[in-house]
Structure formats: C-alpha cells, structure tokens
Simulated scan of single mutants.
Amino acid sequence: MKNIFAKIATMTATSAALTVAIAAGANNPAQAIDFKFDWLGNAGYSASGSFSYDETTAPTIISESGSGATNFLQSLNVSFSDPSNNPLGTYNTVTAGVSESDFFAFNFDTSTQSLFGSLNVGGGTGVIGEYFFSGTVGDSLFLRQDVDQQGTSITLDQNSGSIHVYQIPEPASVLGLLVFGVLGVGSTLKKKQASC
C-alpha cells in the first residue's frame, strides 16, 4: 500500500511541475527559436554550429552583417574540425545579440528555414591563425585560416555551397514528450493495480 501512495505522490509532483512549466511558457510570449547547421567540405573538413532568434519579432528575411548589435539574431556559434574530426576551434560569432566580427555576414529565410547569399562566420576578432567560414550559400563555401590579419588566408577546404540547416525541437515538443511519459507511468500503475 505504501508503494502505491509513493507512486501517486511522484505522479502528482510531476504533474504539478508540468503545470508550472506550461504556465511559465504562457506568461512569456517571447520565444527563441533555435537552429543548427552542418557543413562538410570536399576534403573532409567540417563546420557545425547553431543560431537563435526571437520568432515573435523576426521578419521573414534576417540579414545581419558586421560587428555590434544585431537586428534580430540572438546567438550564433560555430565549431570547425579537420578530416580526422580533431577540433580546430569554436567561435561565438554572436552572443546576446552582439557580433564581435567586422566580417560577419548572415542571411536566413525564416519561412523556408534556409540560409542564402553571403555567409561569413567564425573568426574575425583580430587573432592571427583564427578560422573562418565564408562564401555564398548555393555557390561556394570555404573554410579558411587567417595568416597575418592583413587579409591573407589559406583555404583549407570548400564545397559547392551546400549547407544543412535544421530546427532544434521546440520546448513545446519536449513538454509534449514529458506529458506523454507521465501518461505512460499512469497507465503502467493502473495495469499493476489491476493485476494485484
């Protein structure tokens, strides 16, 4: 009997936590939407990263460039790896709505959820040897390494401009999975009680 009361108490606590989470989401209409992107060059170098923006205020086309406060982008980071999957560097190109790179370029269509046009992310903060990822989506994208901070760089890899962008599951989806899990626990308890 104690075991049943403990399970009921656990279910009640979980339900209460879910109710609080749903209420908090309803009271906060600003909703950050997160995306990831992956790129693979012809020689096996790769780039992967993520970016976010507030979907309640963003226009259909988000275009950002240069250093300073961004218009809509809240964050953007990118990591680079060599063909053996050894990390080359990670860069927070945009943090809390501010770009640190003079060379930053980013264009995203929120309706098609795709990058387009000029792209330049990664380094750009004045450190010799930093990596950066640039070019034109759908044409040519390059992974380069700065040599002297005077405009000289070496190309490590490139591809035909192909880059994969995908949305990270929304908080509502995760919440739905939690609710589904609670319902599953309740169903299991009912089955156990029926068999006793």
Rank of each mutant, 00 (worst) to 15 (best):
G49P: 01
N77E: 09
T19D: 10
R144Q: 15
L141Y: 04
G129L: 06
L177G: 13
G186M: 11
V121N: 08
T56L: 10
E100S: 11
I61N: 12
N42D: 15
L115G: 02
A96C: 01
Q150L: 11
P87G: 08
F35V: 02
F51M: 09
F72K: 09
S79R: 13
G68H: 05
F116K: 07
F80V: 05
S48T: 09
D38Q: 12
D157L: 05
S99N: 10
G186E: 06
D146G: 04
I22Y: 08
T12D: 12
T112V: 07
P83M: 07
Q145K: 15
Q193D: 07
Y91L: 01
T152A: 15
F35D: 04
V98E: 11
S48C: 01
V165T: 05
S187M: 10
S84H: 08
Q158R: 13
G66F: 01
G122L: 04
S67W: 03
D146K: 12
K190H: 00
A194N: 13
F72I: 01
Y53E: 03
G89W: 04
E55V: 08
G117Q: 11
I128W: 01
G68I: 02
A13I: 03
Q31N: 14
G126C: 08
A24L: 11
P83A: 09
A6Y: 11
D102N: 12
P87A: 08
G184E: 00
K191Q: 11
K7P: 03
Y45E: 04
L73S: 01
K190F: 06
W39T: 02
A105T: 04
L141V: 00
S114K: 14
E130A: 04
T152L: 14
V78A: 02
T188D: 08
T70R: 04
F142K: 09
G97C: 07
S46K: 13
E64L: 02
F5P: 00
A47D: 04
S63E: 12
S173W: 09
S79E: 07
A58Q: 07
T14C: 05
T57S: 08
S195T: 15
V121C: 06
E170N: 12
